[in-house]
Amino acid sequence: MSQPATTSKVTSGGPEAYPVEELLGAYRRMSEIRAFEDRLHLENMTGDIPGFIHLYAGEEATAVGVCDNLRPTDVIVSTHRGHGHCLAKGCEIQPMMCEIFGKDEGLCRGKGGSMHIADLSVGMLGANGIVGGGPPLAIGAGLSAKTLRNGGVAVSFTGDGGSNQGLVFEAMNMAVVLQLPVVFVYENNGMGEATGAAFAVGSGDIAGRAAGFGLPATVVDGTDYFAVRDAAATAIERARSGGGPSVIEATSIRFYGHFEGDAGLYRTPEQLQEFKDSRDPLKIFRTRTADLIEASALDEIDEAATTEVDAAVAYARAAAWPAPTQVLTDVYASY
């Protein structure tokens, strides 16, 4: 039987609970995501990147806070805005950059690109161009883990726009019926493409919907790494120990448009600057750890992340394209 459905708000624990090296590692992953996305914002303007790009800057604390609770054998399913999830789960920067540039040394041999990037070796089952397409894949992975009794957990990341999709509701219902080790993470960045979540989410409460399926849910500040990590720790341990699925709604702001090229007319420059000043996950992390970590140490991490991303771009630009003979390889069936 499912547990009584409840919705709660999670406040953050303190950074004092974690070793300094662990804190530095968390900041490093967030800094790498920011550097990666900021550089792609510039690279996309050159016209050398095929396909659409949807940037994750501003939401780093959610991906890293969740994935820092996962084991290497656990899996995640992403969205079209997947670079941050990839890096948080352990994908390497250089093969990721090659993939986005469409090169043969990419994680998917240059055939997936930004919206379909995946790395099964680290449990990243893939970004997804289908809005709301991730949760059904997560319950498949959760069913596998339950059947094999390997203690695995599956996490799906879905945006506030995707949360309105019917297949998402079906996935939540099936997860409860089968009591699967799945955590549904809804990243509510306030905008489903150019439509405000306040308009598109009829109830105005994404997490509250979980009660209709018998799922417990928590709402957390998605810009606070420690709040996300605490909420995810509870949900993931519940799933791993046989307690069943649950929901986390993480609220944040994306710093860039829905996609690269989006004019962003639904937000004023003043609003966007206020978001960057007050809701930047990296700034919030720095403030919360100021008594434990010197700012200079975090500055060094930022510099190293920028250097690594710069090197990855240079490598990807020089890398080889897939050979024409590979056009029909890496598919499920040949006809």
Rank of each mutant, 00 (worst) to 15 (best):
residue 275 F to C: 13
residue 223 T to D: 06
residue 325 T to N: 05
residue 130 I to V: 15
residue 265 L to N: 13
residue 18 Y to D: 07
residue 189 N to Y: 11
residue 102 G to K: 00
residue 228 V to P: 01
residue 37 E to F: 05
residue 307 T to K: 13
residue 87 L to W: 03
residue 243 G to R: 07
residue 36 F to D: 01
residue 19 P to W: 00
residue 333 A to R: 15
residue 89 K to H: 03
residue 276 K to D: 09
residue 268 T to I: 10
residue 78 S to A: 15
residue 194 A to N: 11
residue 152 G to E: 04
residue 44 N to H: 15
residue 304 A to Y: 04
residue 233 A to K: 07
residue 200 A to P: 03
residue 64 V to E: 10
residue 291 D to A: 13
residue 204 G to V: 07
residue 35 A to S: 14
residue 259 F to M: 07
residue 58 G to V: 10
residue 277 D to E: 14
residue 197 A to I: 04
residue 88 A to T: 02
residue 258 H to N: 15
residue 333 A to M: 12
residue 73 T to N: 08
residue 281 P to C: 14
residue 186 Y to P: 09
residue 259 F to L: 09
residue 236 I to N: 02
residue 20 V to M: 06
residue 67 C to Q: 05
residue 97 M to C: 13
residue 39 R to W: 04
residue 119 D to F: 03
residue 269 P to S: 09
residue 9 K to A: 06
residue 251 T to Q: 03
residue 91 C to Y: 04
residue 89 K to R: 13
residue 183 V to M: 12
residue 173 N to C: 06
residue 226 F to C: 08
residue 254 R to H: 02
residue 289 T to V: 15
residue 327 V to P: 01
residue 164 N to W: 04
residue 200 A to V: 08
residue 300 E to V: 08
residue 14 G to Q: 04
residue 99 E to N: 05
residue 320 A to V: 11
residue 60 E to D: 08
residue 281 P to F: 13
residue 127 A to T: 15
residue 241 S to T: 13
residue 81 R to N: 14
residue 325 T to R: 10
residue 6 T to R: 02
residue 245 P to Q: 06
residue 302 D to P: 07
residue 163 S to K: 09
residue 216 P to I: 10
residue 245 P to K: 02
residue 231 A to T: 07
residue 226 F to P: 05
residue 51 G to P: 10
residue 128 N to T: 06
residue 304 A to E: 14
residue 78 S to L: 11
residue 186 Y to I: 13
residue 67 C to W: 01
residue 251 T to L: 02
residue 84 G to Q: 10
residue 228 V to I: 04
residue 61 A to W: 08
residue 104 D to H: 03
residue 272 L to M: 15
residue 268 T to Y: 09
residue 291 D to L: 04
residue 61 A to M: 12
residue 122 V to E: 06
residue 48 D to P: 01
residue 104 D to W: 02
residue 15 P to E: 11
residue 4 P to W: 02
residue 21 E to S: 08
residue 285 F to N: 11
residue 286 R to E: 15
residue 100 I to D: 01
residue 227 A to M: 03
residue 100 I to T: 08
residue 256 Y to D: 14
residue 192 G to M: 08
residue 107 L to D: 08
residue 265 L to S: 12
residue 165 Q to E: 15
residue 126 G to K: 03
residue 154 A to Q: 00
residue 16 E to P: 00
residue 238 R to C: 04
residue 332 Y to W: 13
residue 126 G to Q: 04
residue 23 L to M: 12
residue 39 R to K: 14
residue 30 M to W: 06
residue 220 V to T: 09
residue 87 L to H: 07
